[in-house]
Each structure stands twice: as structure tokens, then as C-alpha cells.
Amino acid sequence: MEDTFGEDDYFGEDEHIPAHEVLQTLEDAWLNEKFCPDLLPSQDSYVEAMMEQIQQMEDNLTKLKKTDFRVEVHHMELARIRYIITSYLRTRIEKIEQNTAFILEQETTRSPENPHLSEGELNYAREFLALQENHQKQLVLKHVPPPFQDFMSTQQSLVPNLRSHIFLRAKKDVNGVVIEGDRDTRDEEVDLEENSQHIMQYKPIANLIHDGSVQLI
């Protein structure tokens, strides 16, 4: 029997992106998200596309005989892909839960074409913040003197540390990354050769993740 599963490419909006590219994008996004102190733009369109692909595959697989060796192999691959997606989403939720107020505030400053949170995440973040606020008010804040009852002042301090150090690989040549000096050294400018690996602060290379020049490892 001809194996036609997986030959269907994903038609994303007007674009025709092959399934393996969608998968690669998700894998890269997963690793970037894992190691980045900040919350990166959501890849939810890719996530949805891949979930559809997985569903399609699973439906197709039910048509095959259980003893067909391909069944187990396909299921294994699907389990692997599901793991990447769930780990990706879980990492994002953890960040949202940790820095809720900051992330929501940042989101309001962004243009609607460039959201960092998916719709689901945005709703979750708002609900979570409301729950936290209510919890703190009931437990503590309503019992303290009025000048100190402001919930938001406690939330101000929970922000991601953009000065954290991260490991990265340069996917192409990048010139002129400025490394901040300290009290004893001056600022330094470095070039990142394609395929070289580095450890450095997140801040100077933050924009390079967005344009795909570097990959966090």
C-alpha cells in the first residue's frame, strides 16, 4: 500500500509551508523559549498548524492495520512532536505566571500586529493576575492600613532579568554586537561568526533572536 501520510503540506493562510519546516520552526522556538529570560513572540499559528497535522496523521493511522510497522513509528514521531509543543507552551505559561503584571503591561505597549501572547495566553494572564490580586487582597491587603493596600506596587518588582547570561549559536555572521563593559573594562564590540557558539548577556542579542540570526542553546 502506498504510504501517502505526511505528504500533505501545510497550507498556512496564503503560504505553503512544508510540514517539516513548521516542525523545525517549532523546535527552534521551543529551545529559544526555554533559555530566554524574556517571553518571546508566540508561535501559535505554527502550533495550531502542527496540531492539525498531528490530528490528520492520527486519523489516517486508524485506517492502517495495527500490525503495520509504520503505525508504531508514526505514533512515536507524533509523541515526540507533542512533547515539544507541550514543553513549549508550559515554559511560556511559567513565565507568564511569574511576571504576569509586567508581561501584560508590555503587551499593551505593542502594536496589534505584533502580539507576544496568543489569545489564550492573554486571557489566562488576565485571569491569573485577577486571581492573584483577589487572593492577596483577601489574605493580606484588606487587613493592612490604607496607604499600603495597593496590589500593583508589590507586582512591580517581578520582572525578567534581561542581563542574564545565555548560550547561543550564531546562525549567520553577525557583526557589531556590543558587550557592556564593567567598572574596570570598556564596552567591547564582537562579531559572531556563523556557527560559532557563545555565552553572553541576553540584552545585546535580544533582537537577533527575533530575526533568526541566533539560536539559544
Binding site: H165, F167, I179, D184, Q197, I199, M200, Q201, I217
Partner: peptide
């Protein structure tokens, strides 16, 4: 020696992982 940037070419993922998160 200080400094906050270093090049780590040819180190494999598992090796890099062995100093994470200690080094960062």
C-alpha cells in the same frame, strides 16, 4: 579573569549543559 562573554566553539550540547545553570 572577569568579562561576560566567551566563545565556546565545538562544545557539544551535553557538555554545555553540564555547566548550566552554574556558569550563567
Amino acid at each position: 579573569t572577569g568579562g561576560s562573554h566567551a566563545r565556546l566553539d565545538y562544545l557539544t550540547t551535553m557538555e554545555i549543559n553540564s555547566v548550566r545553570p552554574l556558569l550563567p
